[in-house]
Design a protein around this nucleic acid. Sequence first.
DNA 1: AAATGAACCTGTTTGC
DNA 2: TGCAAACAGGTTCATT
Length: 248
Amino acid sequence: MALMRDNLRFPLPASMVRDLPGLTFSSVSRRSKYLLFYFDRGPVLIWHLGMTGQFHVLSQSSPLGVHEHVRINMENGTALCYRDTRRFGYAGLSTPEALEGHIWFNQLGPEPLGDIFSADYLIEQCRGRRAPIKSLLMNARVVAGVGNIYASEALFRSGIHPGRAAGKISRARMTLLVEAVRRVLCEAIAAGGSTISDFVQVDGKPGYFAHQFRVYAREGKPCFRCGGAIRRMVQSGRSTFYCLGCQH
DNA sequence: AAATGAACCTGTTTGC
DNA sequence: TGCAAACAGGTTCATT
């Protein structure tokens, strides 16, 4: 295992080099946007890809890639290589038993595709809150892993204005919103994700969900539903795209 | 407590 | 053309 630097967004755990060699990968899963690498024994490796992180399985003889920061050589001659242009990714170690209580997970909201994330749940979370609904959708304590693209897209599909106070949305519309979040995520997964510039699927191909964007990155273009111009605004430092005619 | 804005870092696009 | 500013898919931390 080779570290080309000792940090990404945060310092890489020093114990990684000490504890991982000799272990056998047994499975990979995820919680929110964190990848979880399980082994036959010992620790769980937690890895967030940030915005531009990528894992590639290459030959050990392949030259060091641009922005390749970590390389894990494996017994069969391949290497698991981590590349990350912006270095917004980060990694940590835990154990299967301690995972739920880990700092990155112990305050994390439910999975958007799971049973807990419902209209009842979202109404409860938004009760009394004046922050815009889009900010709440992107708050990982409320619901895990709904990013900037999918928050905008789900709000358009449910007809809710992204700036509306979260606590002032009717039950009927919250029901639509929960369904829209689920639908957008499922459609995006089916399309292989959203490639803007860096993201690629496991097979190296781009994701095609950008072709199904209704509002994201469409500022000034006509709304597919009403023909009005799609607008952009900045909320909490992030671009939000919406249609003034269709979202209230 | 809740909400906003800055910070982390590099590359690309936009505007003067 | 050249340069600077704005912007990019995420999350956390500090400040109002």
